[in-house]
Design a protein around this nucleic acid. Sequence first.
DNA 1: TGTGAAAACCTACTACA
DNA 2: TGTAGTAGGTTTTCACA
Lengths: 160, 160
Amino acid sequence: MQANIQLDDTDARILTALSADSRRSYADVAAEVGLSTAAVHERVKKMLERGVIERFSLRVDPERVGLHFTAFVAIRNDGGAHCRDIAPRLRELPEVLELHSVAGEYDFLAKVRTTHARGLEDVLYQIKAIPGVARTTSTVVLNTEFEERPLRWPGSAPAA
Amino acid sequence: MQANIQLDDTDARILTALSADSRRSYADVAAEVGLSTAAVHERVKKMLERGVIERFSLRVDPERVGLHFTAFVAIRNDGGAHCRDIAPRLRELPEVLELHSVAGEYDFLAKVRTTHARGLEDVLYQIKAIPGVARTTSTVVLNTEFEERPLRWPGSAPAA
DNA sequence: TGTGAAAACCTACTACA
DNA sequence: TGTAGTAGGTTTTCACA
């Protein structure tokens, strides 16, 4: 809930550089942003402490590990006492990669990935078995055009 | 379109380790998976070559950089000649973080992030100005429960 | 916040099973 | 694919501006 109060242009450039390749050496990044290695190190450390950088990660191609099927599942709850418990239960399902509570006709929107269409059926059975889940509607993804883009925010530089 | 034919359990454990912290040293990962540093290096190199690992990246907390508003925008095209050109145009908008072509009532589903609700209005104007876009429906995210989980696939180990 | 310098550590390669 | 060895690069921590 904190804004980018203490993120200057240099921080933004470091984030841009490391978003594209987080294993780049700080020496290399330092040369690009015009700072010493130690200074880049210090800034990264502070961004980790402040939670701006959540973690260093890597992007795996879902197709190459056999996850050929993607769907968005909208979930409606029944308005009963179990509503608060639905999200934790959905977190237990590894196929649910992403979960948002949303406004509108449905209460949650989940991104689900499985090896094939048949796998979604299994996941839907599990979701429907969660107490408080009233109904679901699935939207099948035909093709993912792009995903997990490096973030851009007011004040951040476009990726080179 | 290639499956996980050549991904064994050791590869999976290396991916799990580096998903949680991609700047961990290969020496450290090697100790964890019970291999030499050089062997881990070789395996990572091959996974990069095969495209299993797309890139080393980092996860920035959207809230901490001022992106307080998220919505999913469903987009319908008009069935005309411009339909093929819509995705590239959407890619030009930095607020569109993710784009999927989908089956059903709408043709695309986009994840959009802006600093505040007002920002979505601007993005919607830009989307509606794209030739071939017939209409949009937005679903406002109230809270992101979780996102960008490390992938799990049949044969991969659960994160420790 | 920044810098340069230095010790500890890691990477990335080669030779070889 | 794997291991060990190693030269050269990188990280991380200083004292200090």
